[in-house]
Design a protein around this nucleic acid. Structure first.
Length: 278
DNA sequence: ATGACATATTCAATATGA
């Protein structure tokens, strides 16, 4: 089974590219971020014509996440429990929850498509929101894995954090900026402490997943690695391949992010106690 | 110092992005 994540930066603008890529790359399940539309505006027909069904979560022109799958999707969950909300100029609980998380189960694998808040600037209320959002998600991750230690689970999406210095082209440019600050990196590492691991980096050690549209960032390869597939041990155990699809940043009207895919071998048997039958 | 570039929406000017 091939699973992928892609911040498409408007699915209505990108529908042709996205569906072409799904078919060309033989992708079974795609988690999208920044669909930038409501479910009723989502171009489902193009996906269905290619054999995919869609589960979308969008409230307005901002944010928005979705799954497209050619395998059945079960247990569709919009928002994660305890997901913090945001409203400009206001603080505290009870704020509107943005469309930044959707979970589905495919072939027994639990998948989340996540669009982590940007943070805007250090000290901005949106930065606090980002850290709270990640902390709450980490707590849910702990609870999910405590309940089901052998669950193949992946949190995938646009994390809006560059965990390592090498994940940006020049750390000097990011001095004092979001995405590389120690609190954000600590928030990201929390997921590793709670039992998840980046299943792509060991297989694809270098490469960016995002290049700004401005200032010739892509031609100069001045990018950032901020899109990740964070898998549980059971998910990592069945991961047999990974690809950052850099070529999707080329050509007409690309997203500023490229897709990241992982290949799972769900027939892999790792249980040594199981009798072998030939 | 600003904008660049791209996307959305009350189609014009603003919000958002990383």
């Amino acid at each position: 089974m091939r699973v992928a994540t892609w911040n498409v930066n408007s699915v209505r603008t990108r529908v042709g590219r996205v569906v072409d890529w799904l078919v060309r790359e033989d992708v079974d399940v795609l988690g999208m971020q920044e669909i930038k539309c409501k479910p009723e505006q989502f171009p489902v027909e193009a996906f269905e014509a290619a054999g995919y069904t869609v589960e979308a979560h969008g409230l307005n022109q901002w944010n928005g996440v979705a799954f497209a799958s050619r395998l059945p999707m079960e247990d569709v969950t919009r928002d994660f429990p305890g997901q913090p909300g945001f409203l400009k100029g206001q603080e505290g609980p009870g704020l509107p929850v943005e469309a930044r998380a959707i979970g589905v189960t495919v072939e027994g694998v639990r998948l989340w498509s996540l669009y982590v808040p940007n943070g805007r600037e250090l000290g901005d209320p949106h930065y606090t929101y980002k850290l709270d959002w990640l902390a709450q998600l980490a707590d849910r991750t702990s609870e999910w894995l405590a309940a089901e230690p052998d669950l193949p689970l992946a949190l995938m999406g646009d994390w809006n954090v560059a965990p390592l210095d090498e994940d940006v082209w020049d750390m000097r440019v990011f001095e004092g900026s979001t995405h590389v600050s120690e609190p954000e990196r600590a928030a990201f590492r929390t997921f590793e402490e709670r039992g998840l691991q980046d299943v792509v980096r060991p297989l694809v050690p270098t490469g960016y997943t995002y290049w700004d549209y401005k200032q010739l960032r892509f031609p100069r390869n001045e990018g950032m690695r901020i899109d990740f597939v964070m898998g549980s041990q059971a998910f990592a155990d069945v991961t047999v391949g990974a690809t950052i699809h850099r070529d999707e940043r080329k050509g007409d009207a690309p997203s500023d992010h490229v897709p990241v895919s992982v290949d799972l071998d769900l027939d892999t048997v790792l249980d040594d106690d199981r009798p072998m039958i030939f």
